[in-house]
Amino acid sequence: MVREPVLAYVALGANLGDAQAAVRHALAALDQDLPETHRVAASALYRSAPIDAQGPPFVNAVAALSTRLPAPVLLAELQRLERLAGRERPYHHAPRTLDLDLLLYGDGRIDSPALTLPHPRMVDRAFVLLPLAEIAPQRVDRARLAELAHQSIERIGS
């Protein structure tokens, strides 16, 4: 049985090494290295201060993907890309070479030990909402984004 494509949104972030190059490489990998998946949109790159994390500033973006993968399989593929980029998890909120978070999977809702959708903390993070608003304004509550104006974030490139 062929699954109908679903529009999923993924947040990308990195703050170790050449973070900008890591995010750009990951954007390409989302389009080329995931089965039954292709990228349909990507935001500009943004620089943001760490929130609930340590280390240097992050480079962030959000991508929209058309995928036939079930959400748990897509998450596993995103984690595979993180590992290929050298992602280690020595402690909670450690600096990272690459972080890929599945934000939304169509209008689906999942609440399992391995995956919660929509992403439970996305509405608290300007570094997610601002790039998401760029590619999917209908998915972002503008009033909520305005409440996050105190969080440090700047657009750094397309």
Rank of each mutant, 00 (worst) to 15 (best):
M1I: 03
L7K: 04
L7Q: 10
A8L: 06
Y9C: 02
V10E: 02
V10Q: 06
V10A: 08
L12W: 14
L16F: 06
R24E: 15
H25T: 15
A26M: 06
D31M: 02
L34W: 07
L34I: 07
L34E: 02
P35Y: 11
T37E: 12
V40H: 00
A42V: 10
R47G: 08
A49Q: 15
G55A: 05
F58K: 03
F58V: 05
V59S: 07
V62S: 13
A63H: 06
L65R: 03
L65V: 08
L65E: 09
S66N: 11
T67P: 13
R68K: 13
A76D: 15
Q79N: 13
E82I: 14
R83P: 06
L84P: 00
A85C: 10
G86A: 08
R89I: 06
H92W: 04
H93A: 14
H93V: 00
P95Q: 09
P95I: 02
R96C: 07
D99I: 06
L100V: 06
L104P: 01
G106M: 02
G106E: 01
I110C: 06
P113S: 13
P113Q: 11
T116A: 14
P118R: 00
H119N: 09
R121H: 15
V128S: 10
L129R: 09
L129E: 05
P131M: 11
R139E: 11
L145W: 05
A146T: 00
A146E: 11
A149N: 02
A149D: 11
